[in-house]
Amino acid sequence: MAKSYIPLLIILGVTVLNAVGMAVASHILNPRRPTPQKAMPYESGMIPLGDTRHRFSIKFYMVAISFIVFDLETIFLVPWAVRVRELGWGPFVAVFFFVVVLAVGLVYEWKKGGLEWE
């Protein structure tokens, strides 16, 4: 049983080696000519001064909710898709209505401007 996890361990090892290798190699190989701009934590980004504990726009929450809802939709579609031939038409209809219900949600969100950033 434990043997079947060896490919996973190999993936894990390659990933870690790759990440560490990139960080170490760029540290060894890169030329260093620092300027004040380059030394900033986020070059060309926000200047991180002051308290980080200020409120963020609720627009981010809208994005997060949409992400979770359609993430869950995908996750419920995957088991059905894997077994679609064995399950037959009844579950097909069930999944169809499931997708329609969520499509209604998507259209509602779209019409109300929930997908626009402004």
């Binding site: 609720i58 627009k59 809208m62 809802v69 419920f76 949600g105 509602y108 929930g114």
Partner: peptide, 23 residues
Amino acid sequence: VVAFELMGLLLLVAIVAAVVLAK
């Protein structure tokens, strides 16, 4: 399957609630 469809409706409610709150 009924619980599955109800879950879809629950997700719809979540979308609507988020739009109402964050629109």
